[in-house]
Amino acid sequence: MQRGKVKWFNNEKGYGFIEVEGGSDVFVHFTAIQGEGFKTLEEGQEVSFEIVQGNRGPQAANVVKL
């Protein structure tokens, strides 16, 4: 599992990016966020996640808020 901080997340569009220290930013879609109810992330929030290869490159999967 990787760890990072949410760079930004757009609730209306349902996606954003996670900053990884020493690495490239990783795309995150709301469907990758674990948990119940409305799935969103806050700027600066710490998360753990896996990186998978999506249609447009690397993206976050199994995102857990820390």
Rank of each mutant, 00 (worst) to 15 (best):
M1C: 05
M1A: 08
M1V: 09
M1H: 14
Q2G: 09
G4D: 00
G4E: 01
G4I: 00
K5E: 07
K5G: 03
K5T: 13
V6L: 04
V6W: 01
K7Y: 02
K7W: 01
K7A: 13
K7G: 05
W8G: 02
F9G: 00
N10L: 07
N11W: 05
E12A: 15
G14P: 00
Y15A: 03
Y15P: 00
G16P: 00
G16A: 01
F17C: 04
F17Y: 03
I18G: 00
I18K: 00
I18V: 12
E19C: 14
V20F: 06
V20C: 13
E21C: 10
E21A: 14
G23Y: 07
D25N: 08
D25T: 07
D25I: 03
V26F: 05
V26T: 13
F27G: 03
V28T: 08
V28D: 00
H29R: 02
F30M: 04
F30S: 08
F30C: 06
T31P: 02
G35C: 14
G37T: 07
G37R: 06
G37F: 04
F38K: 08
K39S: 07
T40I: 09
T40P: 03
T40N: 06
L41D: 01
L41P: 02
E42M: 12
E42T: 12
E43V: 09
E43A: 14
E43L: 11
Q45H: 09
Q45C: 10
Q45A: 14
Q45L: 11
Q45P: 01
E46C: 08
E46D: 04
E46F: 10
V47M: 01
V47L: 02
S48A: 13
F49D: 00
F49Q: 00
F49W: 01
E50H: 07
I51G: 06
I51A: 09
V52L: 09
Q53R: 13
Q53V: 13
N55K: 14
N55V: 13
N55E: 09
N55L: 09
R56E: 07
R56A: 07
R56V: 05
G57P: 02
G57R: 06
G57H: 03
P58H: 04
P58V: 11
P58T: 12
P58A: 13
P58I: 08
Q59A: 12
Q59R: 15
A60Q: 01
A60G: 04
A61M: 14
N62A: 10
N62Q: 15
V63A: 03
V63L: 11
V63K: 01
V63R: 01
K65N: 08
K65P: 15
K65Y: 05
K65M: 06
L66N: 05
L66T: 10
L66D: 05
L66C: 07
